[in-house]
């Protein structure tokens, strides 16, 4: 067989099968190999902005969530160097916002926190930015706490493509980038958002949360108390694969 019809590639020395059109990320997760990621949710279009899923493909770095799988390519992911970079990226996300885990309702179910655990992060390393960001608690059902936002853009993308409401957008540039809400006042209460919106269901951190649902799950039984994110992500991805392509 010629290399082009093998339809596998090497990931850290292991052969990974893939379907036509699959990304390196999708193929790896389907095969049970976790690649750390934050801005990507397999149910939505990838965005490649958090850069945690960076892998080395044939010697060059690429974001695996947007990199098409190609037969025979050599991919490195679980290396000391890449994991160190992933730790640094996670630390960057932690210092650019204000993440008070001890008082955060998302703690235990937060992908940023759980990813930090999976990477063995014990400190934030960089100086804290302590930015001044607005909290929007105007809406009866939903709260937007920008302190916790990691600018993954999931709410922007989902509100546009799934809810078709375009409630969220980004403004500012560089380190001053922030989420804005589409309404006459800029407040959630005056926007078209509602608690049924997909956009408010998939925030990986505690930036967009439902009111009245905080601390309902006791410590020890929260999502990432039960299984670490590396196991949980792979299990969910594989269940999704079985559902869609089973």
């Amino acid at each position: 067989m010629s290399p082009d019809t093998r339809r596998t590639f090497l990931l850290d020395g292991r052969e990974i099968p893939f379907r036509e059109g699959q990304t390196v990320f999708d193929a790896a997760m389907a095969a049970g190999v976790y690649i750390p990621h934050l801005c990507h949710n397999p149910d939505f279009e990838p965005h490649s902005s958090c850069r945690l899923c960076t892998v080395i493909v044939n010697g060059r770095p690429f974001a695996s969530c947007t990199q098409p799988a190609v037969a025979g390519q050599d991919v490195k992911s679980d290396t000391a160097e890449l994991n160190e970079m992933r730790r640094s990226l996670t630390q960057m996300l932690l210092v650019e916002g204000n993440h008070y885990c001890p008082s955060c309702e998302k703690s235990g179910g937060c992908r940023l926190q759980a990813t930090a655990y999976a990477l063995g992060l014990q400190d934030n390393h960089f100086p804290q930015f302590f930015p001044l960001r607005d909290v929007d608690a105007s809406h009866p059902d939903i709260i937007l706490d920008r302190d916790r936002c990691i600018l993954c853009g999931l709410c922007v993308r989902i509100s546009r493509t799934v809810d078709r409401k375009n409630v969220f957008a980004m403004t500012g540039r560089g380190i001053d980038t922030t989420i804005v809400v589409d309404s006459p006042t800029g407040l959630l209460a005056d926007s078209r958002v509602s608690r049924e919106d997909e956009a408010v269901q998939h925030c990986p951190v505690g930036a967009l949360m439902m009111k009245g649902e905080a601390f309902t799950v006791p410590i020890g039984e929260r999502p990432y108390d039960r299984a670490p994110i590396n196991e949980d992500s792979v299990a969910q991805f594989q269940a999704r694969e079985a559902r869609l392509h089973g």
Binding site: L93, E96, G174, I175, T177
Partner: peptide, 13 residues
């Protein structure tokens, strides 16, 4: 820096 990706957004600062 446009602010899209983590390393550039935070790293340049």
């Amino acid at each position: 820096s446009c602010g899209l990706c983590t390393p550039c957004r935070v790293g340049t600062s």
